[in-house]
Design a protein around this nucleic acid. Structure first.
Length: 256
DNA sequence: ATGGCTCAGGTTCTGAGA
């Protein structure tokens, strides 16, 4: 059995104790992190190493930042999207135990029509082009992270209020569909899931208590990997911590 | 009570997140 997971920790400096607790309770084969918000010199390699994990990291000051934590050492590590010049640290990829693991912190996009939305669209185009190549090179591939896209109205607590808003625009959903069209499957939707399953809840307005959230953190698997998937779940428990991240981890389980 | 946030950087506030 293998487990892969993704978690937007919203500052690894703040969340490191929670990360170490989570890893102890959930011994995954690979975990990708988003929004570490650390420059590379401040990355807590020693603490993660002492927990029994290898780690690759790619950060910047204040914003963004990603990492790939794994039991086995990740090979052929790539940072950001080849062919897409980008000042922001958003992607880390590596091969772990024969599986290509790609972790992404997709741009937020702020609002349709904004410069940040245009950046998001350009980034998604670059990602799709690169992924087409990666899928040719790696039959077993998982793309996971904070996509900042709610693929369907089922993934939104109030689809009417969010219609056309950021994360829910037709353009973003079309990009998500194009990733699926490359031969990827949304692991969460392989299985029957409880309605109102979210991976993110706003810090404001008691959103978690009221279960008002979005499902924007995803695990996409290639055809070869899909055949091995036995479960996919969102772990809400860390959202109940004191000083939680606003995102919950998502975990996929595969048979050997 | 019908409101209600949390980060980093830096400094008593701003920008960003989603």
């Amino acid at each position: 059995m293998k487990k892969f997971a993704t978690w937007n920790v919203n500052s690894l400096a703040v969340r490191l104790p929670q990360l170490l607790d989570w890893l102890a309770a959930h011994p995954v084969d690979a975990l990708v992190l988003q929004e570490t918000k650390l420059t590379d010199d401040k990355f807590p390699t020693m603490e993660i190493g002492e927990a029994g994990y290898q780690v690759q990291w790619f950060g910047q000051k204040t914003y963004n930042g990603v990492a790939l934590i794994s039991r086995e050492r990740a090979e052929n590590v790539v940072k950001n999207i080849p062919g897409l010049p980008d000042e922001q640290a958003r992607v880390i990829a590596g091969t772990v135990g024969g599986v290509r693991v790609i972790g992404g912190y997709f741009p937020n996009g702020q609002a349709p029509g904004s410069d940040k939305f245009a950046y998001k669209m350009n980034w998604l185009n670059g990602l799709r082009r690169w992924l087409a190549d990666e899928l040719k090179a790696h039959e077993q591939l998982v793309l996971m992270g904070d996509f900042n896209i709610a693929p369907d109205d089922r993934d939104v607590y109030d689809p009417v209020a969010w219609a056309g808003q950021i994360h829910c625009t037709a353009e973003e959903r079309e990009h998500f569909q194009q990733l699926l069209n490359l031969g990827l499957s949304d692991a969460f939707r392989i299985f029957d899931q409880a309605p109102k399953s979210w991976s993110w809840w706003d810090y404001r307005n008691l959103a978690f208590r009221k279960n008002q959230g979005l499902r924007i953190d995803h695990i996409l698997v290639s055809e070869a990997l899909k055949r091995r998937v036995t479960a996919c779940e969102i772990d809400k428990q860390p959202r109940r911590n004191e000083r939680p991240s606003d995102h919950a981890p998502v975990i996929v389980t595969l048979q050997d």
